[in-house]
Design a protein around this nucleic acid. Structure first.
Ligand SMILES: Nc1ncnc2c1ncn2[C@@H]1O[C@H](COP(=O)(O)OP(=O)(O)OP(=O)(O)O)[C@@H](O)[C@H]1O
Length: 672
DNA sequence: GTAGCGGTGCTTTTT
DNA sequence: GCACCGCTAC
C-alpha cells in the first residue's frame, strides 16, 4: 500500500493497532480519509473483513468508505460490516429476535407510520376537557425523551407548558403504543436502539458480537447519543479496539440526543486512550477557513480550533444580498451557467440550506433552465403519498399484522371510510382462512364488497405463495392503478415515481430486504433527470455532513432561518445553529457564496413579504470584512443580474476589486 | 358513514 | 404546499 499521501499523524492513526483511540480534528483535516486507509491497512495486514465493524452516519457514507478502501488495497474491504447504528441494530435483532419475544417477520415503522399508530391510540383518549398534543408532537415527545434520556415532565414544562396537565393521558398513550407495537410485531427507529441495548445485556449476544468484531470504528462520533455510546461500549472485546473519529465543532444532531461528552470524556471512559489530532485542512482555500474560524469564535464554550490550509487564494467568500428569494434563485442559476461554460461539472457544485423548503424558488428556476439536480434532505421519496400507497401492499404481505398499512390500503376503496376500517382492523391482526370468510360475509351486501374481496384474495394468495419482487410489483401496480388514478388528479406526474420505485424494487430478490432497506436508508429524492450523470446537489446542511464541493452556495441565511427562529431564547440550540453555519462554510473547497434575501414570503402561497434581518452570526465587522459583500441588481438592458456595491448597511467595497469579480463571465482566479 | 368542499394555520434538522 | 378540521349533501 502507498501511504505517501498521508501526513505524520494520519499515518499514526492508520498504523494504530490495539486499544482505544480517538481522532479529534477539525473539518477537512482528513478524518474520513484516515478511516479509509485504516480499513485498507488492516485488511492488507490479513485481518478478516468480518471482524471489522464500521459505523457511520448514513449507509451511503459507510459504503463509500469501504469502496474507497477496496480500491486502495484489497476488494475484500467490501465485506467489512458497515452501516449506521440503526442498520447494525436491525441485524442484531434479526439474529436474536427470539430473545425478546419477537417473531422473525417483524417490520420497522418509519416516523410517519409510527405517528399513525400513535394517532390511532390517541383517538381513544381525546376528551373535551383536556387538550392533547397532535400525533407529530406526541411522536416528537416520545422520541426526544428516549434519545436524550430525559423526563417527559421536565421537557413538557420547558417546551409545551400547555400540555403539562395532560401528562397522565400522554403517558397512557405512550404505554399503549408500546404494547401495540409488540402485538403488531413492529419496531420503530428508537426501538431498534433500545432493544439492541437490551439484547446486549444477554451473555449469548455479547459473546456473539465480541467474537465477531475485533475492531470497531465510528465516524462522526460527535453526533452519537448516550444510547448509541452505550451500545458501542458493549460491543468491544477486552482489547477495546475502538477508533472513534470526530469534531466537536461539527456536532449538529443534539435534537436527537447527540452530545459531545462522549468525545470529551472518551479517555476517561476508555483507559489508555491514544488521542491523535489532525491539524491541517486539505479541503479549502485559506479565505474560506478564515471565515469559518471567525464564525466559530462566537461559540460560547471554547471548542474552537483554528483551521489552516496551504491552499492560498486572494478571493474572499461572497456575501450577497438580493431583493428577494426569486432574485437569489435567478442569480444562482446564472452563476451556475457561467461555471458550466467555464467547464465546471455540475457535480462539483452544491447549494446548501437550513431547511429543505428554502430552495423552493430555486428549484423552479433550475427546472426552467434545464439544470438537472438532486435534492437531499427534507421529504423523502418514500414519504410521497402515492409511494406509501404501493409500499403498504408490500408491507402487509411481509407482516400481515401491520394494521397501519392495512388501513392505508383499505381506505383506497370507494365507500370505505374510517368507521369501516376501524371495524376491520379489530379483526385483521388475527386472521385465518375461516375468519376471512366470516369477515367478508359481513360486508356481502355492501357496494364495495367486490373490491374488498379482491384485496383480501390478493393478500391471501400473496402471503401463501411468495413471488419475486418484480412479479409482485406488477401485480400490486395493476391492483392499485384504478385507486391511483382516482385519488390523484396529477397521477400522470406521479406515475414517473412509480416507475422509479419499480426500478428500485427490481434490484431485490427478497421482499423483506426491499422494505427494510428503504426504511433504514430512505432515498432522498430522485434526480430530476436520472439520465444525467453529472447533477447539481441541493442539500440541507445536515445532509451535507462529511461532504465537499468546489463551489458552494449557502442560501437564505437570514435571522430566523439560520439561526432558526425555533432556537431563539435557547442558548444551547442557538449554539448548534452556529455549528451548522460552520459545517456549511467548511464544505466549500474553492468558491463560497452566502446569500441573504431582503424579503421572504411568509408562506409560499401568500403574496405578502416580510423584511428580513441579517443572521446574528454574520453581523460583526470582523466577520463581514472577511467576505466580499455586494447586492444583486438587474441590468435593464441585458436582463442579466449583476453584483453591485450599493450597500447601505455595510461598508462599500473598493471599486476595482468589485468590477473584477462581479461580471458573471469573469472567472475567479486562485493561486493554488 | 362517506365524500368533498372550503377555511385555517403552520413549515427544522434525521435514522 | 399541505395537513387538519368542520360542515354539508348524498
Ligand atoms: N494528507 C493529505 N494530503 C492531501 N489531501 C488530503 C490529505 N488528507 C485529506 N486530504 C483531502 O482533504 C479533503 C478532506 O478530507 P476528509 O473528507 O477525509 O476530511 P474530514 O476530516 O473527514 O472532514 P469533515 O470533518 O468535514 O468530515 C479530502 O478531499 C481529502 O482527500
Amino acid at each position: 500500500m502507498d501511504f505517501s499521501t498521508l501526513n505524520t499523524n494520519q499515518l499514526k492513526a492508520v498504523m494504530f493497532n490495539n486499544g482505544p483511540a480517538l481522532i479529534i480534528a477539525g473539518a477537512g483535516s482528513g478524518k474520513t480519509k484516515t478511516l479509509v486507509y485504516r480499513v485498507a491497512r488492516l485488511i492488507d495486514d490479513g485481518i478478516s473483513p468480518n471482524s471489522i465493524l464500521l459505523l457511520s452516519f448514513t449507509r451511503k457514507a459507510a459504503n463509500e468508505i469501504l469502496t474507497r478502501a477496496s480500491k486502495l488495497s484489497n476488494p475484500k474491504c467490501q465485506y467489512v460490516s458497515g452501516g449506521t447504528f440503526h442498520s447494525f441494530c436491525h441485524s442484531l435483532i434479526k439474529r436474536f429476535h427470539h430473545l425478546i419475544n419477537y417473531s422473525n417477520s417483524f417490520s420497522i415503522f418509519d416516523r410517519s407510520e409510527s405517528e399513525d399508530l400513535i394517532n390511532l391510540i390517541r383517538k381513544d383518549y381525546v376528551s373535551s376537557t383536556i387538550d392533547l398534543p397532535n400525533k407529530s408532537t406526541l411522536s416528537n415527545l416520545l422520541s426526544h425523551c428516549f434519545n436524550t434520556e430525559s423526563s417527559l415532565e421536565s421537557y413538557l414544562i420547558d417546551n409545551y407548558p400547555q400540555f403539562v396537565n395532560a401528562i397522565e393521558l400522554i403517558t397512557t398513550i405512550f404505554n399503549q403504543y408500546k404494547i401495540r407495537k409488540m402485538e403488531l410485531s413492529v419496531f420503530d427507529y428508537d426501538d431498534l436502539l433500545s432493544f439492541s441495548k437490551l439484547l446486549l445485556t444477554h451473555k449469548e449476544v455479547q459473546d456473539f458480537v465480541q467474537n465477531s468484531y475485533r475492531y470497531v470504528m465510528i465516524d462522526e462520533y460527535q453526533d452519537t447519543n448516550n444510547i448509541q455510546a452505550d451500545i458501542v461500549s458493549n460491543l468491544l472485546t477486552k482489547e477495546q479496539n475502538i477508533m472513534a473519529v470526530g469534531d466537536d465543532c461539527q456536532s449538529i444532531y443534539s435534537f436527537r440526543g447527540a452530545n459531545i461528552s462522549h468525545i470529551l470524556n472518551f479517555s476517561e471512559q476508555f483507559k489508555n486512550t491514544t488521542i491523535i489530532k489532525l491539524e491541517q485542512n486539505y479541503r479549502s482555500v485559506q479565505p474560506i477557513l478564515d471565515l469559518s474560524n471567525e464564525v466559530i469564535k462566537f461559540h460560547s464554550s471554547a471548542i474552537s480550533k483554528s483551521l489552516y490550509s496551504d491552499f492560498k487564494s486572494t478571493q474572499k467568500p461572497f456575501y450577497i444580498e438580493s431583493k428577494n428569494e426569486w432574485d437569489q434563485a435567478k442569480f444562482i442559476v446564472q452563476k451556475i451557467q457561467d461555471l458550466l461554460i467555464q467547464g465546471t461539472s455540475l457535480s462539483d457544485i452544491a447549494v446548501l440550506m437550513r431547511s429543505s423548503w428554502h430552495s423552493n424558488d430555486l428549484e423552479i428556476e433550475l427546472k426552467k433552465s434545464d439544470i438537472p439536480f438532486i435534492k437531499v434532505g427534507g421529504s423523502k421519496f418514500i414519504e410521497a403519498s402515492h409511494i406509501k400507497d404501493i409500499m403498504a401492499y408490500f408491507k402487509i404481505i411481509s407482516n400481515s399484522k401491520d394494521i397501519i398499512s392495512w388501513s392505508r390500503v383499505l381506505m383506497l376503496i370507494e365507500g370505505v371510510g374510517p368507521k369501516t376500517v376501524s371495524e376491520l382492523l379489530n379483526i385483521i391482526p388475527n386472521l385465518n382462512n375461516q375468519s376471512i370468510n366470516q369477515l367478508l360475509n359481513k360486508y356481502k351486501s355492501k357496494k364495495f364488497f367486490s373490491e374488498l374481496n379482491k384485496l383480501f384474495t390478493f393478500f391471501n394468495n400473496s402471503i401463501k405463495s411468495p413471488a419475486s419482487v418484480t412479479e409482485l410489483f406488477e401485480k400490486v401496480f395493476d391492483l392499485n392503478l384504478p385507486y391511483f388514478e382516482k385519488k390523484y388528479d396529477d397521477y400522470l406526474k406521479r406515475s414517473l415515481d412509480l416507475n422509479n420505485l419499480k426500478t428500485i424494487a427490481s434490484r431485490y430478490t427478497l421482499l423483506e430486504d426491499f422494505i427494510t432497506e428503504l426504511t433504514l436508508d430512505p432515498i432522498d429524492s430522485l434526480s430530476t433527470n436520472p439520465n444525467d450523470n453529472s447533477v447539481l446537489t441541493l442539500t440541507t446542511i445536515h445532509s451535507a455532513k462529511g461532504l465537499e464541493w468546489n463551489t458552494v452556495f449557502i442560501i437564505s441565511i437570514i435571522d430566523g432561518y439560520l439561526p432558526s427562529s425555533k432556537s431563539f431564547d435557547n442558548n444551547e440550540k442557538e449554539q448548534e445553529e452556529l455549528r451548522l453555519l460552520y459545517v456549511a462554510i467548511t464544505r466549500a473547497k474553492l468558491n463560497l457564496f452566502i446569500f441573504k434575501p431582503q424579503q421572504t414570503k411568509s408562506f409560499s402561497s401568500s403574496t405578502n413579504s416580510m423584511t428580513t434581518q441579517h443572521s446574528r452570526f454574520l453581523m460583526e465587522d470582523k466577520t463581514l470584512n472577511l467576505m466580499e459583500t455586494s447586492f444583486i441588481e438587474e441590468d435593464y438592458q441585458t436582463g442579466l443580474l449583476e453584483l453591485n456595491s450599493s450597500f447601505e448597511t455595510y461598508p462599500k467595497l473598493n471599486f476595482d476589486q468589485l468590477s473584477n469579480s462581479t461580471k458573471p463571465s469573469t472567472s475567479i482566479k486562485y493561486n493554488l
